[in-house]
Structure formats: structure tokens, C-alpha cells
Amino acid sequence: MTYTWQREGWQPFFIRAVVDIDRDFHKITGTMRDESLSFYIQRLVKHPRHHDLLSQRSLAQLKDTSHTTYQLSVLLFGGMPLTVEAFVLLADAREARVQRLNTQKKPAAAGQAKALSVPVDTAKAFSPLLTEHDEACIRMVEMTHELHVLGYQKIRIFPYLSPSSCHWRLAWAPAECFVSPNSPPRGAGGRLVARYTSASGWAPFGWEGVQDLSAHDLAQQFIRQFPELARAGQGQDWPYAGWLSSLLGEVRNGRFPCLFSNGEIELSRGFPMSRGGPFPLPPALPATQTSDD
């Protein structure tokens, strides 16, 4: 199964580093389909409330437009997409910037209407209405994204609701524990399955004082606490990692996947979400995957 973004040529891009070259350009290095890449983009203006518009935590996709240029799409915290040109050569990036500046300086043709400047409330644009309860759940999905960045892409999630529908729950397990992409994980007596409930808030897995930890720090702590799960989840599954990156964009905007662990649900249109339309189902299990417990 392929998704629209894949058919349009986009691929998940995992950012490793963002370096300021000068006051005009960033150098981005990262990985796409297990290939290391580096390129240059025009420096982004920092938002006063969100200093790291572009970092290792960013959800990014890359589209190859020629041998020397790409399109880089980054999903900002409030669900707002940002797409910029990226260049393999710094000289090409500088030339493109000069051309843009020259174009902006050209006077409008006679009779041509001048574009209106519409003020945007950027504080609202970057701030979906999220509660502390939501933010703890978001951090759990962000942690999963970080696990994938660290090379544990075979770790999958199963999001569902408690029987009372009062609490959102999340289970982590390696792909080998799933009979199908949409079923709860099974097997190994629970040793390969970790679980979270929103009732725990900022105390997942019995941890304390994690509210100020980054998703990367949480991922490292997860690996230490669940070493067997981590070992079984180590390896590449780029289609699933890309799917989870897209899901995280929805979750960061307050849309949580809602499945029930007891009883069948309708999945013909995708994952039911806490609000809005459904989200595409996860990719198939790896070809070598078996359904044995």
C-alpha cells in the first residue's frame, strides 16, 4: 500500500543536524532511505514562542526535484506545513536567493493589482488548544518518533481507548508481536510489550520528573527500561517510520487515533480519530514477518 505523499515523490527525512552557515543559510544533514544527505536552505526566521522551528525533532519529508535540488517539507508544532527549496551546493542556494530578491524588487506592471498584506496571528497559528493531559500523550508519540530516529523502526504502536472510553492508551511492541498492522500486540508474556495510559499523565511506566525531558531523553530511558523490546525492535522499516511521522503531525494538532481493544471497529476508511476524519492505516508488516506468537 502506498500513500498519496509517497506517490507524489515525498520520502521521510530524518534530520541529524542543523548548522547555521551564516546569517542567510542553514546546512541540514540527515538520512533518507538509509542514505546520508546534506543540503542548504535559506535561514528560517525564528518564531518568538518556538525557537527550534528546525531541529532533530522536526517531522520532515524530502522530495528530489533534480540532481542538485530538493523540496524540504517540515510540519511545525501547530500542524502548519512549511516547504522550502533545498540545494546540494551552497553556491546554488546563494544564487537562488539573489534571484528571489531581484524579483521582489521589480515594480508591478501597469494596472497590476498590488498583493494585500494580511496580518496573521502567529501565536494562535502555532498553538492548538491542548491540555496538559494531551501534551503528555503527545510526548509519548514523539518519543516513538525518536526511537525510530535512533534506529528502532521495528517498534510499532497500538493506540486504543480504555473500556470506559475515559482514557487514551498506547502499547509499544516489535513488529513480530503483531498478527496484522491493526491488531493489538501479542506474545512473549508481556516482556516485549510496554503500555501507557493517559491516567498516568506525566508518570509513564512509573517514571517521575519527566515533564521537562525531551522526547530524545525519554526514548533513551525507554530503551534502558525495556531492553528486550528495544533489541527486538531494532532495524529499519522506513514505510512505517514515515507513517508514524505523519501521524505525529496529526497528534501534535490534538487529533488522537482511537481504537478499542475489545470489540471490532470499522477500519475501511482508516483509523478513527478523536476528531475530524480518519487517518490512513499503518503499512503492512515487514515481508519476513510471521504471525506466530
Score class of each variant (00 low, 15 high):
W243L: 05
K154V: 07
V45W: 14
P163H: 03
L213M: 10
S164K: 07
S246I: 08
L244I: 02
L59S: 04
E135A: 01
L59I: 11
L53M: 06
P282I: 03
F77N: 01
E8D: 15
D20K: 09
L161D: 01
A109N: 10
V84L: 10
H148D: 02
V149M: 14
L229P: 00
E135W: 04
P227I: 05
V179E: 15
A17T: 12
Q56R: 15
D134Q: 01
R94I: 04
W10C: 09
P128Q: 10
N262I: 10
D237V: 13
F14E: 11
H67Y: 11
A284R: 08
M32E: 15
T131H: 01
L218A: 01
K124G: 08
G235P: 00
P272C: 01
D34M: 09
A91E: 11
K124I: 10
A113W: 12
P184R: 04
L129Y: 10
S291T: 11
Y3D: 06
E176H: 01
R23H: 13
T197L: 13
A287P: 05
E176G: 02
R269W: 07
A241D: 02
Q104E: 14
R139Q: 02
S117A: 14
Q61Y: 14
H51P: 10
I41W: 00
E264K: 10
R7P: 05
L213E: 06
G151Y: 00
L90S: 06
H67D: 15
D20V: 09
Y3T: 06
V120A: 06
Q112R: 07
V74Y: 03
A110E: 15
T68C: 13
D20P: 05
P12T: 05
G242T: 02
V18M: 09
A232F: 06
L229R: 01
P280C: 07
L285K: 00
S245H: 07
A86Y: 00
R169E: 12
G270M: 02
P257R: 07
V179G: 13
S198L: 03
